[in-house]
Design a protein around this nucleic acid. Structure first.
Length: 417
DNA sequence: TCTGGGGTCCTAGGACCC
DNA sequence: TCTGGGGTCCTAGGACCC
């Protein structure tokens, strides 16, 4: 049996933990640049604020109902996530952290437990230890555990257990096809066209038909919904095959030097991510584009892959090639809205192939990066940086409604009177 | 005025190898 | 008339996840 633990309205709930005046109030959290709504409390959902809606389109609702609006505070959410995961880890022998607010728990060996009581104990303990409300879905496969979790949330309960044919069938009959894990917008529309409206309808289809139209992924989905596991718990996090840092700018940028500073900063951030997973990249991709939403302005979008002489995670070298790529694709006369850097062809740093005609980074460069990473970990991001990253940050994001880092910064710790 | 960021997997088709 | 069998690698495109 698997349990899927999923924090309810996670980002909105994080904002509430240290700000109890937000209890029972509508709370929304915005994407980077304060652009779109990416998290909503139940009260905000009840006001029909849709997921992903640009915030300027709902400003009347926000004003009328005094919705509390926050910029994303990933420092806070990341720390709260760790607290939740640490608490969950105390209850089971094995778990897979699936996302910032979700984990699959293995319930092997718990067959003779009273699962209801145990589920209740888990959710109550997480709430007590962290302040975060959590739902548990328990079932024989990961996909069914996901479905059970949805069912729990819909019923207003903190857990739902699907462990026999009757409970599974009943739940799947009430589960809309687009709410099934693995069914996105495209497949949902396709299936609806064929009058497959619920998860249960899906399980009634012939396997060959599903395989034909939805590839092997659909076939696995079908088996999982029928209680035959196709996915197991994945414990060790595999190294990333691509590493991307990209941002929409707070304002549009036409100046190549400002773009260079942005791209240098993205490359530096990617280099840090590479070093953290002990990898090197053998090529980097740089892209930029104008604001697609501004039909009144000339549009331009391009990307380029720059192969490196040898794989590296040395920040100055990655910045050099990133800027080289940028100058290749930059065109004068456009107002740019977004740029990004992606590390591709990633390999483990202990298996870098040398280049006969180009000196490979030596031990010294590795030592320098270790020191820089240590200093920045201790004293704050970019405390030591490459000059090319600049100081102006003309491209910086809007973050007007940022909450304090209550749990990670001494000066932000709440006061109690 | 204003519209996010960061990933994965699968398939088909083309080019190539012996 | 009739034209093999068994592979790999790469890319683009399409789908999905949080």
């Amino acid at each position: 049996m698997f349990a899927l633990a999923d924090c309810n309205n996670f980002y909105a709930s994080c904002e509430r933990v240290f700000n109890p005046s937000l209890e029972k109030k509508a709370v929304v959290v915005l994407s980077n640049n304060d652009g779109c709504v990416i998290a909503r409390s139940n009260e905000a959902k009840a006001l029909n604020i849709a997921m992903g809606v640009p915030v300027y389109q709902i400003k009347d609702i926000v004003k009328k109902h005094q919705v509390a609006v926050f910029s994303t505070n990933f420092t806070l959410y990341g720390d709260m996530s760790n607290r939740v995961m640490n608490t969950l880890a105390e209850f089971v022998p094995d778990m897979e952290i699936y996302s910032i607010d979700e984990a699959f728990l293995s319930l092997d060996g718990f067959e003779h437990y009273n699962l209801e009581a145990y589920a209740e104990k888990i959710t109550k303990t997480v709430r007590k230890n962290t302040g975060i409300p959590l739902s548990l879905g328990i079932a024989p496969t990961k996909t069914l555990a996901k479905a059970a979790n949805k069912t729990a949330k819909k019923s207003g309960k903190f857990y739902c257990i699907l462990n026999d044919e009757e409970s599974i069938t009943n739940a799947l009959k009430k589960l809309d096809i687009e709410d099934v894990w693995g069914i996105g917008r495209r497949y949902a529309a396709f299936l609806r066209k064929h009058n497959i409206l619920t998860a249960y309808d899906f399980t009634c289809q012939p396997e060959s038909w599903i395989r034909k139209h939805m590839t092997v992924m659909g076939q696995r989905l079908l088996k999982e919904l029928k209680g035959i596991p196709c996915y197991t718990l994945e414990n060790d996090i595999p190294a990333k095959k691509n590493i991307c840092t990209a941002r929409s700018f707070g304002k549009m940028i036409g100046d190549v030097e400002q773009l260079q500073e942005a791209v240098a900063s993205f490359a530096a951030r990617c280099a840090e991510k590479l070093r953290r997973q002990k990898s090197c990249a053998a090529a980097i991709m740089v892209f930029l584009h104008t604001n697609f939403h501004r039909k009144d302005l000339p549009q331009y979008a391009r990307s380029i892959v720059v192969p490196l002489p040898h794989a590296t995670n040395y920040t100055p070298e990655l910045i050099k090639y990133a800027i080289y790529g940028l100058t290749k694709i930059f065109k004068e006369g456009y107002a740019y809205k977004k740029a990004g850097v992606i590390m591709v062809e990633i390999i483990p740093s202990n298996s870098v192939q040398g280049n006969l005609f180009y000196p490979v980074a030596d031990e010294k460069t590795k030592a320098v990066m270790d020191v820089v990473d240590d200093l920045n970990a201790k004293y704050g991001r970019d405390k030591v940086r490459i000059l090319a990253q600049g100081y102006s940050k003309a491209w910086k994001m809007h973050q007007e409604k940022l909450s304090p880092c209550y749990s990670t910064r001494l000066s932000d710790i709440p006061h109690v009177y």
